[in-house]
């Protein structure tokens, strides 16, 4: 008995492969790859982000030096940082294009409303990643961009000042701000992202990919399909 068979008997891994990777989809086009492209860049961000955390430290007196060290001293540091840096922009662009694709093709309609809603959360999470990550190098651009970006919060009626204090961890940008942005960037948001992406992909697989609008008939829902083949 081969290892694959041994494992399959205990885990049903072949079914997982069949349902997740070898699932049937309608004849579509390149626009339908945008979600997968986003997923790919997300994995890139996770891998390179973990690598950056090996050297980066989130304190005002060393944050910039540690980034400079990664960029100029560590072997391939420029590559890892570059991939994370440009990957961040790529991810925002791809999420946007993916969403536009869903709008144009009307793929948000029944029964995919919840997929759309989890998608909205993913958009917010992606933007939050960009916002919190931008501060981490603690250079002039980061400092002032975050000063301006957090200042908006203060304009909220009544509770503005209080909210600004929460976001910055005080009235001004400080060591506290950097530490909490780091915590949100590397713990809160990744946890949220992985949770919501899991639900998003579960729904994509469960409901099947929508037919392009120029095709009349929806493909059968997965439940129907299993009944039909049984």
């Amino acid at each position: 008995m081969g290892l694959g068979q041994w494992l399959n008997e205990r885990t049903g891994i072949h079914d997982v492969y069949r349902v997740v990777l070898a699932r049937k989809i309608p004849k579509t086009g390149w626009a339908y790859t945008l979600g997968s492209a986003t997923l790919f860049v997300m994995i890139n961000q996770i891998v390179t982000g973990i690598l950056l955390s090996i050297y980066y430290v989130p304190t005002p007196d060393h944050a910039w030096d540690s980034v400079n060290y990664i960029q100029n001293e560590v072997l391939f540091g420029w590559l890892i940082r570059g991939l994370h840096h440009f990957g961040a922009s790529a991810m925002v662009i791809l999420v946007g294009l993916h969403m536009i694709r869903v709008v144009i093709y009307g793929a948000y309609k029944y029964p995919r409303e919840v997929t759309w809603l989890t998608g909205v959360l993913l958009l917010i999470i992606t933007m939050a990643f960009g916002f919190t990550g931008y501060l981490l190098p603690w250079d002039q651009k980061a400092y002032w961009a975050t000063t301006v970006g957090t200042q908006f919060v203060g304009t909220t009626p009544l509770v503005g000042d209080w909210m600004l204090n929460v976001v910055r961890g005080g009235p001004d940008l400080s060591a506290v701000t950097l530490a909490r942005f780091f915590g949100v960037h590397v713990w809160v948001l990744p946890a949220a992202l992985l949770t919501v992406v899991s639900i998003h992909l579960f729904l994509v697989i469960r409901l099947g990919i929508s037919n392009p609008p120029w095709k009349k008939n929806q493909p059968p829902l997965p439940q129907d399909e299993t009944e039909a083949s049984a």
Partner: peptide, 12 residues
């Protein structure tokens, strides 16, 4: 590159 990145301090 990831392996090089991780062992880099030992090479310096």
């Amino acid at each position: 590159p990831a392996v090089g990145y991780l062992i880099s301090p030992a090479l310096q």
